Amino acid sequence: MSLSPAPFTLFAVVTALRSAGCVFAEDEAELIVAAAADPAALAAMVERRAAGHPLEHVLGWAGFDGLRIVVGPGVFVPRRRTEFLLHQAAALARPGAVVVDLCCGSGALGAALAARLGPLELHAADVEPAAVRYARRNLGGAGEVHRGDLFEPLPGTLRGRVEILLANVPYVPTGDVGLLPPEARIHEPRVALDGGPDGLDVLRRVAAEAPHWLAPGGHLLIETSERQATRAEETLARHGLATRVVVSDELYATVVVATRPGGLG
């Protein structure tokens, strides 16, 4: 069902979204109506959402830990479950800590951690050009964003100094990518989703390099799935890191925390 530019009502938007199969049509309609600048913009937004574009891309923002993170076409939408990783990091970090956010996407994790703790020595990196653009907008002056593959673009001066290493790496097994909702598999970059045959390819690469970048006593935090947690722990432990798994049943989130032996000076 299409929506003519005028007149427009909340009921018409709900009807159009419900016809398109949007489960939370009423909630989405309220957000879209509030965001639309005029009837023509509203009609275009409803059309995009009905065509399967992620709601966050249509709105231009995603809610994350109380922040509005700017997102758009070609960038991974931060998930609410990743707030659990953020909470674990915030509990371990000190104000002014040296923080690196790998596979940063929109920069949501770094922006939210800075909002919670105040100024940090914050660096973020992503291989996707669109992600880098959005991360720079979302971090503003709170951190520096680098374009490149994992650790490769980071300043060498960070080696051995990183206190908190955030790595929300892709962990969907290649064979499962096709089972994801269309919003993800069609409209988000595959490189942000596909973790290789068992979903752990990128995690292995991070595990191999992390000990060289972490400060003594520094922490690496990686989101994974419940079924991958044991293998993820084993992988990190093989590189000399002390590991533990924390789980949130409420957010359906699993995070592996790996610590470099020693103490922060």
Rank of each mutant, 00 (worst) to 15 (best):
residue 185 R to P: 09
residue 253 A to P: 00
residue 163 E to R: 03
residue 177 V to Y: 05
residue 262 G to Y: 07
residue 171 Y to S: 01
residue 25 A to S: 15
residue 170 P to C: 09
residue 255 V to W: 00
residue 180 L to E: 10
residue 102 L to G: 00
residue 239 H to T: 08
residue 149 D to G: 07
residue 103 C to W: 03
residue 187 H to T: 10
residue 12 A to F: 04
residue 7 P to T: 02
residue 15 T to C: 06
residue 242 A to L: 10
residue 117 L to Y: 13
residue 219 H to N: 05
residue 208 A to I: 10
residue 87 H to G: 12
residue 209 E to D: 10
residue 206 V to G: 03
residue 234 E to Y: 01
residue 55 L to K: 02
residue 212 H to I: 02
residue 20 A to I: 05
residue 152 E to D: 12
residue 32 I to M: 07
residue 15 T to P: 00
residue 124 A to E: 05
residue 121 E to I: 14
residue 44 A to K: 15
residue 115 A to H: 15
residue 215 A to T: 13
residue 238 R to K: 11
residue 84 F to A: 07
residue 90 A to F: 00
residue 66 G to C: 05
residue 103 C to L: 04
residue 166 L to A: 00
residue 104 C to N: 01
residue 133 R to M: 11
residue 215 A to E: 11
residue 13 V to M: 07
residue 182 P to I: 04
residue 97 A to F: 01
residue 263 G to L: 10
residue 105 G to A: 02
residue 12 A to N: 06
residue 87 H to A: 12
residue 218 G to D: 01
residue 216 P to T: 10
residue 63 G to L: 15
residue 77 V to N: 02
residue 18 R to S: 14
residue 56 E to D: 15
residue 199 G to P: 05
residue 5 P to G: 10
residue 233 E to A: 15
residue 183 E to G: 05
residue 140 G to S: 06
residue 222 I to A: 11
residue 172 V to H: 01
residue 192 A to Y: 12
residue 55 L to Y: 04
residue 169 V to D: 00
residue 241 L to P: 04
residue 173 P to A: 08
residue 26 E to Y: 13
residue 226 E to K: 14
residue 85 L to H: 01
residue 94 R to E: 15
residue 184 A to T: 08
residue 173 P to Y: 05
residue 254 T to P: 05
residue 245 V to D: 01
residue 140 G to C: 04
residue 1 M to S: 09
residue 41 A to T: 10
residue 22 C to R: 14
residue 190 R to I: 12
residue 115 A to L: 13
residue 151 F to R: 01
residue 15 T to M: 14
residue 13 V to S: 04
residue 264 L to K: 13
residue 98 V to D: 04
residue 60 G to M: 11
